[in-house]
Simulated scan of single mutants.
Amino acid sequence: MTIRAEQWTPPNGPEPTALPMGRWWDAVRVEESVGERVLGILGEQSGAVIKDRCSTLYWLIAPGTAVSWNLRGVCVLAETEGVATYLGVPPAERLTPPGTYWRVPFIRGRYLTDSHLLYKALISVLLAEPGEGQEGDR
């Protein structure tokens, strides 16, 4: 599946800028321990990934492609019923900490991750470590 990435680029300037979901992309947020394993599965198939000050990872995906997801520990950030959700997006050059940076660098035209592949990788990681109240705890 080919994802058509709009001609969007990260903001200029030294600091992250809060940008709304839904226009160019939505985002999928996971904690670092899950996200790093997902990156291992996706490899070169991952688009750009933002890592924030709290060691949380964010994949950029096509708008509206993950709104129905209901996965433990996974938050889909999207515009909901006309209400905007924002994500702090670093400048393209920010590739290292401190602060919010690109864990997987932004590449024009290739920054979106295929949401179907991301979902499959998340399921794989989450099934490997069932949480409290999950079937694997019995």
Rank of each mutant, 00 (worst) to 15 (best):
V83H: 08
A78K: 06
V67Y: 01
C54V: 05
A62F: 09
P63W: 00
C75G: 08
W59D: 02
D52Y: 15
T65P: 13
W69V: 02
L71K: 00
L77N: 05
S46I: 09
G64P: 11
G64I: 07
Y58D: 02
N70C: 04
N70K: 08
G73V: 10
I50M: 03
E44L: 11
P63K: 04
G88Q: 05
E44P: 12
A78V: 06
Y58W: 15
G82H: 15
T80I: 15
L77S: 05
E81G: 09
V74C: 02
E79L: 13
L57A: 03
V76C: 11
C54F: 15
I50H: 03
G73S: 12
V76P: 12
T80Q: 14
T65W: 06
A62W: 09
S55Y: 15
G82P: 14
A62R: 08
N70L: 03
S68V: 09
W69A: 15
C54G: 08
A66Q: 14
C75I: 06
K51Q: 11
A48Q: 00
V49L: 04
T80Y: 14
G88M: 04
V49P: 09
I50V: 15
C54D: 06
P63E: 02
L71H: 01
G64Y: 04
L57G: 07
T65N: 09
D52I: 14
S68L: 13
Y58Q: 04
R53M: 06
I50T: 05
W69L: 15
E81Y: 09
G64K: 09
A84K: 08
A78P: 03
P63M: 03
E79P: 08
R72M: 05
T80E: 14
I50L: 03
C75N: 08
A48S: 03
D52S: 12
G88I: 00
I61C: 04
K51R: 12
D52A: 13
D52K: 11
I50E: 03
L87N: 03
Y86W: 07
Y86G: 01
A84H: 09
W69P: 09
V76Q: 14
I61A: 02
G64S: 14
L57W: 01
L57H: 04
C54I: 06
Y86C: 02
L87F: 07
L71M: 14
L87R: 07
E81M: 06
G82Q: 13
Q45L: 13
L77W: 08
A48W: 00
T80S: 12
L57P: 06
R53Y: 05
W59Q: 00
V83R: 13
V67M: 07
N70F: 00
V83A: 07
G64L: 06
W59R: 01
V74I: 01
S46T: 11
C54N: 10
V67S: 07
N70T: 02
G82Y: 10
T56E: 08
K51M: 13
R53N: 01
A78C: 09
V67I: 05
V74D: 07
Q45G: 08
S55V: 02
T80C: 09
C54E: 07
Y58F: 15
W69M: 15
V49K: 06
S46K: 05
Q45S: 11
K51S: 11
G88H: 05
L57D: 07
G64H: 08
P63V: 05
W59V: 01
V76R: 14
V76H: 12
G88C: 00
L71R: 02
